[in-house]
Design a protein around this nucleic acid. Structure first.
Length: 623
RNA sequence: GCCAAUGUAGCUCAGUCUGGCUAGAGCAUUCGACUUGUAAUCGAAAGGUCGUGGGUUCAGAUCCCAUCAUUGGCUCCA
């Protein structure tokens, strides 16, 4: 329970509007004026009970005795807390407090109403005080609470300055920029700076992820923890393989680190001190463990063990975290866009100085852009935001401008007067969906704090120990979010009259064979064999359904190539291929077809079919 | 987390306002017939704790309270 207590000359309030369903009835909307009293603004919080109410009223009584005041107004005031109890409980505890008042003259202002009020507070030192009262508070919880609120306090003090930086180096205040040719950037800018949104429908990918049997909510788990069906797992796995191979190509070394850490480990304590985390906590044998919300700790703690020389740098560690956990507020979770458990490729580069960091960040910028492109997300699908401190900008103007040139279009700039986070620069690519939502995909940061915090050092040319600068990069962003982006893009295509699709290399079924009659099943079987030997996922619709229906369903599954096998095909060397992209029937030889296919999936990982080859043996998952 | 809307068969939904007959439909599933030439063949059967818990009532999918989940807005997004 949180209480703000004011000793007042007078208070005047007028109930104006019933705000919630459980508001008190029988409330007159006349103005009430009270004089010479103590006003206690009260917010009842989760976990409060009558013992808290008693404690609260006795504390108030004590302080009122000191100042010699007999009149108390309990004023329900939800805004004191972000962890409110349910309205019905709050109301009953308020009434309870009123009944414990003893010799005091106590009243309360109506609960659940918007009220206008005017208050005249006295000037003496004891006139104003605030209290937080909780049940059985342990010292540990208390200190954590303190840490969180301090961190939140400093975060809320951040003042941002917003600009748009164009590739020609021109930096204009956001309000003066002409967004006419940059609609998506305008969306991002408003989204970030003004937090403006206006949507009243669920994002289309939520229906698609179920329909395509990719993923679904798991009611037996916590919100934001999804289940992935065979199709979804296949797609995820291919994306994971691809991103991992690209990071290794760039120079990252893949590691694996624990998913849970001890909150009381010294390095964690100071990390928490800097960041108010919403994480999953687990109590185990007296330890307070939490589930990782990034790969940072694992890699930092590992790097801490390394004997590093400047000659080893830059050194890059990479992990594909399945999962990272963030206990986001339940209201923030949406489909695959924002989860509590997600798969995050996370690559840290340890650099010897700022010059090396800047060289490195450029490489990773190109890597991220290329990875997204190959995953099927084009430059026109996202907008870049770059954030830095004023000092960093003044010293590294050229680098920042160069990054913007590499992107080739204007970007949103957020500038801070001082460093609030551990980084001096951060950029991200934000996917903008049809409904105007922005979500970060690739990102990189220049971290100048954590090496010191985690005791990571290297020996430089002069035999001096130094802390490296650490870059934090995810070249693709969360894998689930990539799937979200691909599905949202597909839905947009469909809305605009184009055929929705996902990249061929990610399709659960790449080729479908449909025998016209049962008698062709042998030919189909051997053709399928031949095709799958070339690492193509092929299946056979052997169900006793009309040809029209089987074609229709293949189309609904977004299958790119359909081969109908009948009399004609069994007597011919050529394949008659229904190409979904063009909607046309084409005649190709087997090798021509394979060649066309391989051209489109070149350089991408392959994986075999992740469901029964025969549709008749396949459970119905999609609708 | 707060506010609001939604929750009925495996899926998509009707029925709820105004309580009352055996809770309906389409798709999917099973069975039977049909043997198909490029986006839905025909028939039958089976399938329901009406999100969950409590209450009011002679009677609850329907009204009331609580709770959970999803979606939207706020907040948040290291």
């Amino acid at each position: 329970m949180r209480i703000l207590q004011l000793h007042c000359d007078s208070i005047e309030y007028t109930p104006t509007k019933k705000e919630i369903k459980n508001a008190e009835d029988d409330v007159s909307t006349e103005t009430i004026k009270l004089e010479e009293l103590v006003v206690a603004f009260v917010a009842v919080e989760k976990g409060d009970d009558s013992s808290v109410a008693q404690d609260a009223i006795s504390q108030i009584k004590n302080s009122m005795e000191k100042i010699g005041c007999k009149k108390l107004l309990l004023y329900p005031y939800a805004h004191l807390s972000s962890n409110l109890a349910s309205p019905s409980l709050a109301l009953s505890l308020l009434k309870e407090m009123e009944s414990y008042s003893g010799s005091l003259e106590v009243s309360h202002s109506p609960f659940g109403w918007t009220k206008s009020y005017k208050v005249q507070v006295k000037g003496h030192p004891l006139a104003e005080s605030s209290k937080t009262i909780t049940k059985n508070e342990s010292t540990l919880d208390e200190s954590k609470e303190e840490v969180t609120s301090n961190a939140l306090k400093s975060e809320s003090k951040i003042q941002s300055f917003w600009y748009i930086l164009s590739p020609n180096g021109k930096m204009s205040p956001m309000s003066e920029f002409n967004f006419a040719n940059h609609k998506k950037l305008e969306i991002l800018s408003k989204y970030e700076s003004a937090k403006k949104r206006s949507v009243d429908e669920p994002p289309p990918h939520v229906a698609l992820m179920k329909k395509m049997a990719i993923a679904d909510y798991e009611p037996a788990s916590d919100s934001g923890n999804m289940r992935f069906f065979p199709n979804g797992r296949l797609i995820k796995s291919l994306i994971e393989q691809y991103v991992t191979s690209r990071v290794k190509e760039y120079g990252g070394y893949e590691v694996e680190t624990p998913i849970m850490y001890d909150s009381n480990h010294p390095s964690m304590v100071s990390y928490f001190n800097r960041f108010p985390a919403r994480q999953y906590n687990i109590d185990s044998e007296g330890k307070k463990l939490f589930l990782r919300f990034a790969a940072c700790f694992g890699q930092f703690l590992m790097a801490n063990e390394f004997q590093l020389s400047y000659k080893n740098l830059p050194y890059r560690l990479y992990e594909l975290t399945r999962y990272s956990f963030r206990r986001e507020q339940s209201g923030e979770l949406v489909g695959l866009r924002r989860l509590r458990a997600f798969t995050m490729p996370d690559c840290h580069a340890f650099c010897k100085d700022m010059d090396q960091s800047i060289e490195e960040i450029k490489k990773r910028f190109d890597l991220s852009q290329s990875v997204l492109k190959e995953l099927g997300i084009q430059e026109s699908d996202y907008e870049m935001a770059i954030r830095f401190t004023e000092d960093f900008y003044n010293e590294n103007k050229k680098t920042i401008e160069e990054l913007v040139q590499r992107l080739g279009k204007p970007v949103l700039v957020e500038m801070w007067k001082e460093k609030f986070f551990y980084f001096v620069l951060k950029w991200e690519f934000n996917f903008i969906d049809t409904l105007g939502k922005a979500s970060a995909l690739s990102t990189d940061q220049i971290d100048v704090e954590n090496a010191n915090r985690y005791g990571i050092d290297f020996v430089d040319e002069n035999n001096v120990k130094k802390n490296p600068i650490i870059l934090h990069n995810s070249p693709s962003g969360a894998v689930e979010r990539i799937i979200y982006a691909l599905l949202e893009k597909a839905s947009l295509d469909s809305k605009q009259g184009r055929k929705p699709q996902i990249p061929l290399w990610l399709s659960p079924t790449q080729v479908r064979i449909i025998p016209l009659k049962d008698e062709f099943s042998g030919i189909c079987e051997s053709l399928a064999e031949k095709i799958s030997l070339r690492n193509i996922r092929v299946d056979i619709d052997d169900r006793n359904e009309s040809i029209g229906k089987r074609i229709r369903e293949a189309e609904k599954e977004w299958i790119r190539y359909i081969l109908v096998i009948g009399e004609k095909e069994s007597n011919s060397e050529n394949l008659s291929i229904r190409d979904r992209q063009t909607g046309e029937l084409r005649n190709l030889t087997f090798e021509e077809f394979i060649k066309e296919f391989e051209l489109q999936t070149k350089g991408k990982p392959v994986s075999s079919l992740n469901m029964p080859k025969y549709l008749s043996q396949r459970p119905q998952l999609m609708v």
